[in-house]
Design a protein around this nucleic acid. Structure first.
Lengths: 265, 265
DNA sequence: CGTCAAGTTGACGATTCGTCAAAAAATGAA
DNA sequence: TTCATTTTTTGACGAATCGTCAACTTGACG
């Protein structure tokens, strides 16, 4: 039974929930409502503006009820982190359907990752902070479990792209290391680039670099290093990048333009 | 005068300080003392264990005095972040003296970066957290300025390696982008790898990967992608990595072994 | 010794966190 | 419907934390 719950076929899960107890569903909906509120609070009043007391004041429920959902402030942050990863997962699912070669699909995932980070800077930070011992230590076990499951789904999504590339021969197998090492490298580079660029907007250190350009550039370097064909010298990935934006994320890019009137250099 | 203070010739600065007011120096020393205490508190009681009240209780000074040093808790965290970067700077300075080719020196810097992150996990997290808007917003302007200066010194150190490589012809100039783009890519990859591996030790997601191996592997991929000669296929960088550890960081590696009895796989 | 600037102190009010006994609501049997 | 039982909700409360500030101490200097 436990096993069934943790499987990721949403239909089954929803049916199960609806059948057994509609009460539970109302609770789940309320949780989403609270999470949206929390996100809004964070966006408005900065990070430290997110307070349990404020959340209680902003919603129609009492403190006890809120604490029924989130066992602590840290648990709430982890919940936001999970929400973030769920959104990412959806974007990634769209990204890997991109009509192109394998490398382009990886770029599409990077595009999605970057887009999500820029559109939801607060949530992006939540993921960072949720990894922090202070937070992880105080979150509820159930929440951490859910988080781990999401992480695995995310990395599975990425791994599938690399596995396919190895199968098709576009990407030579690494010697002495599992092919997941490739996948991890790409993830680390994308993550590091996004994180530093987000932080850089604070510190204004790397002014000359456009975020999109930097991520595309860095990823291309890495994939070239893996000798994933076609190499960046043999293919116009700049154009692929544009095409990814147009064909997969037109709507999100529009939202982005509304948010930031001046879109880079 | 202001300019003189912000220059980085330590001698001048120290002399200036000592001459003008020995009182100031006592204060500076006390600040270091408080920072060490704060770090210890964080290590012992987890991240949220670091509390202004606890720091006050642990030291011999009153709350007001502590607040004379750090205008807020966030300011204290930023101070810890600066301490972290200062340590990194020292390690990097040692790294770039490595007796080898240019790529090896970059690896040495990566080695130093990794080593520092593993030896001071709490401080490493401070850097992450200090970038967070919540923290940056509430830190004192002076502190942020110092932090920025340190960041610039760090990136200058890295840039110098890449500039030298471009000059010597080992590294082809990037087309259409400043060569700092290379430096940034390496930084982002190293940062992302370290951060994810630190977090991974929490989430146990990437069990099969050894941290050192992963960082060496990822960096090599990236530098190969840049076509920085000699490529990893033409040179045994695994051996370079070992040599870096032996020749530059023997002492630190010993400390590491004492901390972690089981050194990877 | 007296004066004044600089530095120190810790009590204090304001927030925030998380708990828990009591009240309210939902459930189900008679 | 009625009433007992279980589940959920409530908000007052105590403990911890943050940051302030008026009073106090220190030490430099004439």
């Amino acid at each position: 039974m436990n096993f069934r719950l943790s499987c990721n076929k949403d239909n089954e899960r929803c049916l199960f929930k609806k059948f057994k107890n509609k009460r539970q569903q109302a609770i789940a909906e309320r949780e989403q409502e609270l999470l949206c509120l929390a996100e809004k609070l964070m966006e408005e009043h900065g990070f430290s503006g997110l307070t349990m007391d404020k959340l209680v004041a902003a919603c129609d429920y009492s403190k006890g009820t809120v604490y029924n959902h989130f066992s602590s402030k840290e648990d709430l942050i982890c919940a936001l982190c999970s929400k973030c990863m769920t959104l990412e997962l959806e974007l990634f699912a769209r990204a890997i359907t991109f009509d192109g070669n394998g490398r382009e699909r990886v770029l599409a995932v990077c595009f999605a990752y970057w887009l999500h980070a820029v559109l939801n800077p607060t949530l992006f930070y939540c993921v960072l902070i949720a990894k922090t011992p202070a937070v992880a230590e105080r979150a509820s076990p159930a929440r951490l479990e859910g988080q781990l499951a999401l992480e695995m789904q995310l990395s599975d999504t990425c791994n599938s792209l690399f596995a396919a590339a190895v199968d098709s021969g576009d990407l030579p197998k690494p010697t002495g290391l599992p092919f997941e090492a490739f996948s991890f490298a790409a993830w680390a580079t994308a993550f590091g680039t996004n994180a530093l660029l987000q932080a850089a907007s604070t510190s204004q250190l790397i002014k000359g670099l456009d975020a999109q350009q930097a991520l595309l550039f860095n990823t291309n370097l890495l994939l070239d290093g893996m000798q994933w064909t076609p190499l960046s010298s043999q293919w116009d990935y700049q154009e692929s990048w544009q095409r990814i934006g147009k064909e997969l994320f037109a709507e999100e890019l529009l939202t982005l333009k509304e948010k930031q009137p001046n879109p880079g250099i």
